[in-house]
Design a protein around this nucleic acid. Sequence first.
DNA 1: TAGATTGTTAATCGATTAACAATC
DNA 2: TAGATTGTTAATCGATTAACAATC
Lengths: 211, 211
Amino acid sequence: MGKSYSNISMAIIRRLPKYYEYLKQLVDKDIDRISSKKLSTMIGFTPSQIRQDLNSFGGFGQQGYGYNVEVLYKEIGRILGLDQAYSIVVVGAGSLGQGIVNHINFQNYGFDLKALFDTNPKSIGKNIRGVSILHVDELQVFISKNHIDIGVICMPKEFAQDTANKLVGSGVSAIWNFSPLDIHVPEGIIIENICLNNGLFILAYLLNNSK
Amino acid sequence: MGKSYSNISMAIIRRLPKYYEYLKQLVDKDIDRISSKKLSTMIGFTPSQIRQDLNSFGGFGQQGYGYNVEVLYKEIGRILGLDQAYSIVVVGAGSLGQGIVNHINFQNYGFDLKALFDTNPKSIGKNIRGVSILHVDELQVFISKNHIDIGVICMPKEFAQDTANKLVGSGVSAIWNFSPLDIHVPEGIIIENICLNNGLFILAYLLNNSK
DNA sequence: TAGATTGTTAATCGATTAACAATC
DNA sequence: TAGATTGTTAATCGATTAACAATC
C-alpha cells in the first residue's frame, strides 16, 4: 500500500505521467542523477515547477546533487499507484477496442486485462492477446464474480452511457471512456473521458491561428 | 477563409471542442436557444466562464435571450476551422492506426484522409475505408506530390521521431502523435502528443487518492 | 572549501468567478 | 413593462515563476 495524497492539484497530477515517461528514458540510458535544470530542458517545464511538483509529494532530491534517477522513477511510479495491480475489462472489441488493447501494454504496468466484451457474434469466443471476447450480455455477471477496478468503454456512442451505467452498477470504480460523448457517473466514481476527435479539432484551430 | 485569432489562451481553445460537442447535441434535439446557465448544467463549466470564453471570439449572444444554438454551433465550428478542408496521412496502419481511422469520422468534419503508410508487406495494397495502405518508403514522395496538412503517427515508438522528421521535412504542418514518447518538432510546426498510457496512470492515481 | 542544487517562501502572472450595468 | 440574460469589468483564486537560504 502506498501513501495517500490529498490536496494535490489536478494540474500537478496530470504532469506526473510525463515525469514518469522521461525518467524511464533516463533509467534506460543508465543515467543515475538528474537536476531540475537538466530535466527542464528535456521535458519543457521550468526547473522551478519541477522542484515544486516533486516537493509536493516529499523531498526526493539532495542539495548540490539533484535527484537520483532510479529513486525518483520508482517514487513517481509509487505515487501514481503503479506498484499495485488493477483489473480491467474493455467493452467494445471493435477496431478501436482492439487497437487500444494492442497499443497499450497493460501487463507491463500492472494492469490486468480480464476480458473484452462485444455484441458481434463473429467476435465472441475469439481472443485478443490471449484475452477472451465475451458477449456483452455476460458483462454484469462477470464483473460481479470478478473484482474489476477499471472499465474501458470503446462502444459506439449510442451505447456508451448505458454501458457505463452497467459497469458502475456492477461495482466498477473507474471508467475510461473513448466514445466521443461525455459519460456522466455518480459521485465517487472516477471518470476519464477521452474524446479523440477533440485533438483533431485543436489541430485545425492551430493550423489557422498560429503565427 | 475564417477570421484569425491570436492572444486566445490555450485553456480556452481546449474547451472549444467541448462546446462544439454539446451544441451538436442541442442541434440534434432541435433546441434553438440556450443560456449560459443551462449550458453550464450540461457541460460543467460555470455560466460566467462560458460567457467569457464565447465573448473572447465575439458577441454571439443576445441579452435577455441567450444564444441561438444553430448560430453558436456554426460559429464555434468556424472558429475551430472546421469550415475548411484538411488533408491527412496516417503513418502506421497496424491495430491502433486502423482503430483510429475506423473510430474517427474524418470525412464528417472535413478531414480528407489521403493515404495510410506501413512497412508490413501483408498490409501494403490493402485499404481501410477505401483508403490505400502504401509502403512507408513512398511517404516523402507522396507528400511532396500531394499537399498534406496533418500527419498522424501510429508507428512503434522507436520510429516515431524519425517518421515525424520525414513528415516535417516533406512539408507537413501539423503532427498528431499517438506513440507513447513525445515527439519534438521545429518552431512553427504544430504538434499534439497523445500518450494514451497517461490516462491510465491518472486513473491509477485517482483510484488510490480519491476520498 | 567552493560550487551546485534543492526545498521553500514570496512575488507574479493568468485564469476563473462574481457582480452588475446594459439591453433584448 | 418586467424578467431574463448577455457582455464586460472588477475581485478572487490558483498556478507558475523567481529568489534565496540551507546544505550536500
